[in-house]
Simulated scan of single mutants.
Amino acid sequence: MSVYDEVTLWSFMFLLAGAVGQTVIYPFTSTCAVKRSTLTLLCSFTPLKSFNEGGREVPLKIVRVRWCQNHELCQGTTPSVYDSKSTKNDPRYQYLGDMKTNCTLQIRDVQERDNRTFRFRMEADNAAGHYTNRTGVNVRVVAGTKMRIISSSEDKKFRGNETVTLLCTSVCTFHQLEVTWFKDGHALSETGLSLHLGPLTAKDSGNYTCALKANQNTLSEPYSLQVEAGADVNLPLIVGVVFGVLLAVITLILILFIIKRKLAAAEDQSAAGGEMEQKHPDQTYSIIMKPAKPEEEEEAHQQGTSQAVEDISYAAVQFKPKKQKSRHMEDADEAVVYSSLASRG
């Protein structure tokens, strides 16, 4: 029965108890226990709140609770396994309930003599409030049984990072067991019925067994678990390393690309500057020079004209005719030259 079903059953029982008044409810009327294990008998009760006496309502209060073996009424001098009025109760029987609604009994270190029917009785400050549920709980004690391991997976070979849960159980399923887990004969710290393993690594390979903590004779048959060698690779670590390498490579490529772009830009700028100097030196000089004023332009024009005349005179002086001139002609030429020079002065 699942936890949800158990809660539903208890809720229904409490509603029923409220409807009919005085009740004692056992969720399970039959159960079994492995010898030397711990067994819990769940129980709840609803006492009678009051009774009618001579036409008036008299309130009731529970003053005593008892658990007995086999006796149907559990009253009077009947031996009890637990009696709230007694100081000589067997310590193996622990009352986990109270005097109001909870009557749960726990049996520790179950023995073969506990193979009985257990019944709960409540007693009030007036006999009208006494009540025993005769149905009781039938306990069956199993001796010499072996525990067994059930796996959450049908496979016994696993790969790294997988998970598996091992369950230590017996023929009795209606009680909680305190067990000891072993791996290759060495005790583990876990004491619950289930052992969760994962993420698996090669170190988890081995033979697992379990037994009742109070009875090592219940040791189960070994469950062999194998994790494939080399399969316990840390996937997140690999992903991180690969990502880091890719990031480094991309960063290096970007740096090289930026450097190449900068070098190319520098070369283009240098080439453009040299070409401008070669193709347009006069133009560059003319841009730098300050434009001349009109008076300066006129003076320059006159100086240019004088320079032209001087060049012509100089050319005439240096010119040598191919044929020898006569003396008369030489005198005439010298007069022309002299007149030219005189006009310059």
Results as ranks from 00 to 15, higher is better:
residue 237 L to E: 14
residue 216 Q to E: 14
residue 41 L to K: 01
residue 66 R to A: 15
residue 226 Q to G: 04
residue 166 L to H: 02
residue 267 E to M: 07
residue 289 M to C: 11
residue 109 D to R: 14
residue 39 L to R: 02
residue 172 C to H: 02
residue 147 M to H: 04
residue 50 S to Y: 06
residue 91 P to W: 04
residue 90 D to A: 06
residue 40 T to N: 11
residue 4 Y to S: 12
residue 15 L to H: 07
residue 306 S to E: 11
residue 297 E to A: 09
residue 76 G to F: 06
residue 118 F to S: 02
residue 252 L to D: 07
residue 145 T to R: 10
residue 278 Q to D: 12
residue 217 N to L: 13
residue 32 C to A: 14
residue 5 D to R: 05
residue 267 E to N: 10
residue 289 M to P: 05
residue 280 H to D: 12
residue 259 I to Y: 06
residue 329 M to T: 14
residue 324 Q to N: 11
residue 145 T to A: 09
residue 284 T to N: 10
residue 165 T to M: 06
residue 47 P to A: 11
residue 54 G to W: 13
residue 101 T to F: 05
residue 97 G to T: 03
residue 36 R to W: 12
residue 130 H to L: 08
residue 15 L to N: 14
residue 27 P to T: 00
residue 17 A to C: 10
residue 110 V to C: 03
residue 248 A to C: 12
residue 71 H to N: 15
residue 21 G to K: 05
residue 246 L to H: 07
residue 196 H to R: 15
residue 83 D to T: 04
residue 202 A to S: 15
residue 111 Q to T: 12
residue 33 A to D: 00
residue 150 I to D: 15
residue 208 Y to K: 04
residue 162 E to V: 00
residue 92 R to A: 08
residue 250 I to C: 10
residue 186 H to S: 13
residue 186 H to W: 06
residue 76 G to W: 09
residue 59 P to W: 06
residue 70 N to A: 12
residue 173 T to M: 08
residue 154 E to N: 13
residue 295 E to S: 12
residue 58 V to L: 06
residue 10 W to I: 14
residue 30 S to P: 00
residue 13 M to A: 10
residue 296 E to P: 04
residue 246 L to C: 14
residue 65 V to D: 00
residue 276 M to V: 12
residue 5 D to W: 02
residue 54 G to Q: 15
residue 116 R to T: 08
residue 129 G to V: 02
residue 219 L to A: 15
residue 127 A to C: 07
residue 68 C to R: 01
residue 270 S to A: 15
residue 10 W to V: 07
residue 109 D to W: 07
residue 255 I to V: 15
residue 304 G to M: 06
residue 103 C to S: 06
residue 148 R to V: 09
residue 341 L to S: 09
residue 261 R to H: 09
residue 237 L to G: 03
residue 308 A to K: 05
residue 124 A to F: 02
